[in-house]
Design a binder for these strands. Structure first.
Length: 315
DNA sequence: GACTCGTGGAC
DNA sequence: TGTCCAAGAGT
């Protein structure tokens, strides 16, 4: 999977600088990036053929806002325990939350379980390849639908994640960072840059994402290793610093999220219903503590029992 | 659009 | 040490 068929771009004719090719937008970028990918793609388990569409889908859920290094061990355990969607669908949702461990954003575990149930009920147990059908599954948005269709089934979709957005912002728009939220202009650009050929488009999607992850990183980018440095608008402009509205940072200490995390950690580690008193120990402020617990219950991550006990959801 | 939702590593 | 960041989705 790491080095399938090479695209028919091997010898691109000499071109002028930056995007002057009106016939094929981005054609001056495709070949170098894909060739770089041929040599530098990481050997990740979800890229191996035996991963299948289910493996790709599980990896995409886990990789939403979580680094590869932390996903790897959980992914392996997950696929060993639930090798098919129907296997996960047969489990209690709380088991998915427990197996999720400390990946963060545990609602993703619940949604992945829900997606497995839907796949089992509506799609005969097979991960759909159609973008609209993928989009209809819980926890799958625009990015993940495109990623699964492209990576697992070789379909032609613009796969616009934070890595690709940063690569395009720099190489094409000449700015350090993309906007905070994905814009219509970015989607239009991503579609325009998508190679016509389906297999090449899928390869391009994975390659441009990998370039952002390994070379064109948010901080300490290494342009000396970049296959398109010579054409990069940002580098050619002298790599100007980001201006405009500040990129919103995330605070964490003292937030409800931190309290929710502490509460859920207790329930994950317990294999029997937990009394209220055990949950009360994780946070000093009773108001915030109650709000966080209510939120977990409302989200379906925690199941309250009639006798004042709590556990991960059985249904 | 703005906001919420976990966790840990790097600098 | 605190800030920033990581293959987003849902409301």
């Amino acid at each position: 999977m790491t080095a399938p068929t090479k695209p028919p771009h091997s010898s691109s004719p000499a071109r002028g600088p930056v995007g002057v090719d009106a016939e094929a937008p981005g054609a001056d970028l495709h070949a170098p990036v894909i060739h770089w990918f041929d040599d530098h793609a990481r050997d990740l388990p979800w890229r191996r053929p035996e991963a299948g569409a289910w493996g790709v889908m599980v990896s995409e859920f886990m990789l939403q806002q979580t680094p590869v290094s932390r996903v790897l061990p959980v992914y392996e355990q997950w696929l060993a325990r639930w090798p098919r969607p129907a296997d996960l669908a047969a489990e209690a949702p709380g088991e998915a939350v427990r197996a999720w461990g400390r990946l963060g954003y545990p609602r993703r575990a619940l949604r992945l379980h829900g997606a497995a149930v839907a796949i089992t009920e509506r799609h005969g147990g097979d991960v759909p390849s159609d973008h609209a059908q993928l989009l209809a599954l819980p926890g799958i948005g625009e990015y993940t639908a495109a990623a699964v269709a492209s990576f697992a089934y070789g379909r032609r979709h613009a796969v616009l994640d934070t890595n690709v957005r940063r690569v395009f912002a720099r190489a094409v728009r000449g700015v350090q960072y993309p906007p905070n939220a994905t814009t219509a202009a970015e989607r239009k650009l991503a579609r325009a840059l998508l190679p016509e050929d389906e297999a090449t488009a899928a390869r391009w999607a994975a390659a441009s994402m990998e370039l952002g992850a390994l070379v064109c990183t948010a901080r300490n980018e290494t342009c000396v290793r970049c296959p398109i440095a010579a054409q990069c608008a940002w580098r050619l402009a002298g790599k100007p610093e980001h201006d405009g509205p500040p990129r919103r940072g995330q605070t964490y200490a003292g937030t409800d999220r931190q309290v929710r995390g502490k509460l859920l950690a207790v329930l994950r580690d317990a294999h029997a219903p937990v009394p209220q008193a055990a949950l009360d120990r994780v946070w000093h402020d009773p108001v915030q503590r109650a709000r966080a617990l209510d939120g977990l219950v409302a989200d379906g991550l925690v199941e309250p029992l009639p006798n004042g006990l709590y556990r991960l959801p059985l249904t």
